[in-house]
Simulated assay, not measured.
Amino acid sequence: MPPIRPAVKSDLPMVLDLAHALAAYHGDTATLTLAALERDCLGEAPWVTLLVAEGATGLHGYAALCPQTQLQFGARGMDLHHLFVCDTARGRGIGKALVAAALEHAEAQGCSYVTVGTGTQNRRAQSFYRAAGFDQITPDPRFRRRLA
Rank of each mutant, 00 (worst) to 15 (best):
E54M: 04
P13G: 09
T31F: 12
M14Y: 05
L51R: 01
A24N: 10
A35W: 04
H20T: 11
G58N: 06
P67D: 11
G61I: 01
A53H: 02
E54A: 13
T31K: 15
L32Q: 11
G27V: 05
H60A: 13
A30D: 09
C41N: 01
V52F: 02
L22T: 01
A36S: 14
H60N: 12
G58A: 08
A56V: 12
L34C: 05
A35K: 12
L71I: 14
Q72D: 11
V15M: 04
D17E: 15
T31P: 06
L18D: 00
V52L: 04
H20S: 13
A35P: 05
H60M: 13
L37I: 04
R39P: 03
Y62K: 04
H20D: 12
P13F: 07
P46E: 04
D40F: 03
D17N: 13
G27D: 10
H26T: 09
D40T: 07
Q68V: 05
T31E: 14
G43I: 03
L51T: 00
T29N: 10
T57D: 15
C41M: 03
A24S: 14
A36Q: 15
L71H: 13
C41F: 00
Q68P: 01
A19K: 09
A53I: 09
D40Q: 13
R76M: 06
G74T: 02
D17C: 12
V52M: 00
A23G: 10
L42D: 03
A21Q: 14
L18C: 03
L65Q: 01
A19W: 02
